[in-house]
Design a protein around this nucleic acid. Structure first.
Lengths: 183, 183
DNA sequence: CTTACCATGTAAGGCGTTACATGATTCA
DNA sequence: TGAATCATGTAACGCCTTACATGGTAAG
């Protein structure tokens, strides 16, 4: 019942690349996966325990220069489970842009308010686009060494392409609204 | 606690355009708002009752040719509440594309699988793009009559622009993967 | 020495989906 | 007469966020 849980698969996916602690997983969620997925500690740690319990991951205690952390590795079982999920058809691609919602009800909000929201959106997207471009440069430098990064690069390219489209839409939208104001 | 609820505002927004029944609201969610918002009956009807209770909407029973339905109207209080929310800064724009997730873990899935997912994605987006283009044509025909539709048109334009970007990314991604295969 | 960051976790509770239930009406 | 659509709802339950709690270490 309710929406199918995927966080276990996402974490397994990250572990398929390298061993990670819960804290590091959260980092990945906030950076690498940030623009197309997310999760909080409150869901990550319990999921990690669950993966252990199901034998899909193993845990080791790692002590790097005085600092202790629990690192998790994907198990053979986990790899099988992950591959199975990856092969399944995609269940849902979802976009929830509150900005579009507020725009849609723009008649009630008024032109100035709408303009304001577009400006804020544009600023946010611009800065995220810069981040993505940086990531792309870093990736392209090491693509030759590690062709596995090719897939990462594809997702970054997706982000760049759509964010560029967003920005050009912002300009057009603002132009249309300005014209409306003159009339 | 937990994520802030916005469905009440979304419904009020829809009611600000016209009076609607729960069933009709669901229809709007599945068509007009479909690509940037969603909701099920299980959340719509209770929210509608809640709006009544809070005095943000009123209910009337409408009998159209034998068919009975409960239509809701936004109240003055509701309009104030809606405007207030619309003026607030946008809290969250969220994108959750499982397709990108599976792509990201492409190394584990393999090229063929990734290609498959891209194809499916491309097909789905193409068809949704067609829908959006149709909507745009319909809208442009009546923009002169009702300038309130301008805002609706802007959201449609956003969808078209980003979906076009998605599709051109699909082509590039497939080309890159094909090249990889040849090597 | 204090701020920031590393690191792990739990509890409460909201949100919203899925599945189930029911019944009328329209149309083929 | 049967399928599709109109129409309204509820119960169970899963998911995940927020907020809270705790403590160690690195760096300025």
């Amino acid at each position: 019942m309710a929406t199918e849980k995927k966080l276990d698969c996402v974490i397994l996916g990250l572990l398929s690349h390298e061993e990670l602690s819960g804290y590091e997983i959260k980092k990945r969620m906030d950076t690498t996966l940030h623009y197309f997925w997310g999760a909080s500690y409150g869901s990550i740690y319990p999921t990690l325990h669950d993966l252990l319990r199901r034998g899909l991951a193993t845990k080791a205690i790692c002590i790097d220069s005085k600092r202790k952390k629990d690192v998790y590795q994907i198990s053979e079982q986990g790899r099988i489970y992950l591959r199975e999920w990856l092969s399944l058809p995609v269940d849902k691609d979802e976009l929830r842009y509150e900005t579009l919602l507020k725009l849609f009800f723009g008649n009630e909000l008024g032109k100035e308010g709408v303009m304001q929201h577009i400006d804020t959106f544009q600023t946010k997207i611009s800065s995220q686009l810069q981040q993505l471009r940086l990531a792309q440069q870093r990736l392209q430098a090491c693509l030759a060494k590690d062709p596995a990064h090719q897939y990462y690069e594809l997702t970054v390219a997706f982000g760049i392409q759509s964010y560029e489209a967003y920005l050009s839409w912002c300009e057009r939208a603002k132009a249309i609204l300005t014209e409306l104001e003159e009339t």
